[in-house]
C-alpha cells in the first residue's frame, strides 16, 4: 500500500463520481460509471485484494455497463431539466 498512489486514485474516484452525477448525457454517465468501476478495481488491487478487484472489474466495468447500455437503448438519451 503506497500512500501517494492511493491518494491519486481516490482523488480520481471522487472526480469521476461528481462528473457522473452532473453530466446531462446518460450515455456519458454510463461510460463514467464504467471508469469509476475501473478506478475502484485499481484501488482494490492496490490494497492487495486482487480477488475483489477482479470481481469489481468483471461485474462493475463489464457486466453492469453492458446492462445499462441495453436499458438506455429503450429510453431517451438526454436528461431533462
Amino acid at each position: 500500500m503506497i500512500v501517494p498512489i492511493d491518494l491519486a486514485l481516490l482523488f480520481f474516484l471522487v472526480l469521476i463520481a461528481i462528473a457522473a452525477i452532473t453530466v446531462k448525457d446518460l450515455l456519458a454517465a454510463i461510460a463514467l460509471l464504467g471508469a469509476y468501476s475501473f478506478v475502484m478495481a485499481c484501488v482494490w488491487v492496490e490494497m492487495n485484494s486482487v480477488d475483489v478487484g477482479f470481481t469489481e472489474a468483471a461485474i462493475g466495468a463489464g457486466a453492469t455497463t453492458a446492462l445499462m447500455v441495453a436499458a438506455l437503448s429503450r429510453i431517451a438519451r438526454w436528461e431533462k431539466g
Binding site: T55, A58, G62, A63
Partner: peptide
C-alpha cells in the same frame, strides 16, 4: 474454491 461467479460473468460478457 471460488471464481464461479466471476468466470460466468466473463463468459456472459463474450455473448454481449
Amino acid at each position: 474454491a471460488g471464481g464461479g461467479f466471476q468466470g460466468g460473468t466473463v463468459i456472459a460478457a463474450s455473448f454481449v
